[in-house]
Design a protein around this nucleic acid. Structure first.
Lengths: 189, 189
DNA sequence: GGATTTGCCTAAAGGTATTAGGCGAGAGCA
DNA sequence: TGCTCTCGCCTAATACCTTTAGGCAAATCC
């Protein structure tokens, strides 16, 4: 009787893949057990419960996304950095819609504070340094960028831009341009 | 044996209330049956299934939100109209988080095309008329507004702005100002 | 007033989440 | 080599949600 070698890490990764295939809300302990060809209760030695699984997937996705964004913006500044950040964000969501949905899971404050989510905020601030914004403008700007990126990607993934011209990429570039213009205008320099 | 007088409309409205109380993803046929003090299968004479219930709640919420927005922007133009639109949107989401979540339910294309969602797009376009945008800028702008409003409200409802200064309202106003500035800049007039 | 329709009910099957407890295989030790 | 212990997956069982099939009684219609 071969043991499948379940670990929280393998389960999390498989859960992330499952999310991309069938949607994050279809990620279930049962489906994961089927994927490993084990019985459902076997997973409960490695996972606290169903919500624990979802949180692990969310943290996994946040980390992966933060890595991508960090990589994309490295060595860039100003408009370049903004566009790289934006594209990294959108591309990740398009490649991994289930993981992206997972990354939006509401985390309790302690978990969130210790999560890779803080890396995201730091990177957004780093990009804004190029625009010379003082507080509280910098915070407002971080929130605006987060809102636009998340909002656009959500609407695009939901199919909101599928059946009308112009295509989603054109609007995305127009919007990134607009954000760049706003930030330059807000600059105190 | 008094009959509770179930109808799809009453079930939908009660479902919307339930969503605001316990969250849209906790809205279940069982919970609704409990609320009416009837047995679960009784609801299946009035609802096709669980998904049908969710769709009805989504359409209900979309309609209600469109009414609110229409009311808010009536008689306004330019920056005034934009702010009224934005605030109506945000206020609805804060008052009715469950219904707001319902309104984000992904609808199949036919349902969406016949849904109150089209009213939303029309109202957004109406507001943009005041800014004198030609196509395709107008479409880009509609998408940008939708993204920002939806993104901001999602992040705020998820508690993203709770534990940091400045407060969510200040950022909201800063962002609406920024949008107004962008749109004025994009104007061909 | 009798037939029909309507509206909620019981019964039943299937899926997911979760806990409790069992059993066998491999690790450590003599 | 043989004993013990632990670990990892298993069976059993409970509970809740969804959905279908079919029954029964009250309301409605002629």
């Amino acid at each position: 009787m071969d043991r499948p070698g379940l670990t929280p890490e393998r389960l999390t990764r498989a859960g992330a893949e499952l999310a991309d295939e069938v949607g994050f809300d279809q990620v279930t302990v049962s489906a994961l057990a089927r994927r490993f060809d084990v019985k459902v209760p076997s997973l409960y030695s490695h996972l606290k419960n169903s919500q624990d699984l979802r949180i692990r997937i969310a943290l996994f996705a946040l980390n992966e996304l933060a890595d991508r964004v960090a990589d994309a913006v490295a060595g860039r500044a100003g408009r370049d950095a903004l566009a790289a950040f934006a594209d990294a964000y959108r591309d990740y969501a398009r490649e991994h819609p289930g993981r992206y949905a997972a990354a939006r899971l509401r985390l309790d404050p302690e978990t969130a504070a210790a999560s890779p989510g803080v890396r995201h905020a730091q990177m957004a601030r780093a990009i804004l340094r190029g625009y010379g914004l003082d507080e509280p403008d910098a915070t407002h700007a971080v929130r605006m960028l987060g809102s636009v990126f998340h909002g656009y990607v959500s609407l695009e993934l939901a199919g909101g831009f599928e059946h009308s011209a112009p295509n989603a990429l054109e609007s995305w570039e127009w919007i990134v341009d607009s954000l760049d213009a706003v930030l330059r205008n807000r600059s105190t320099r």
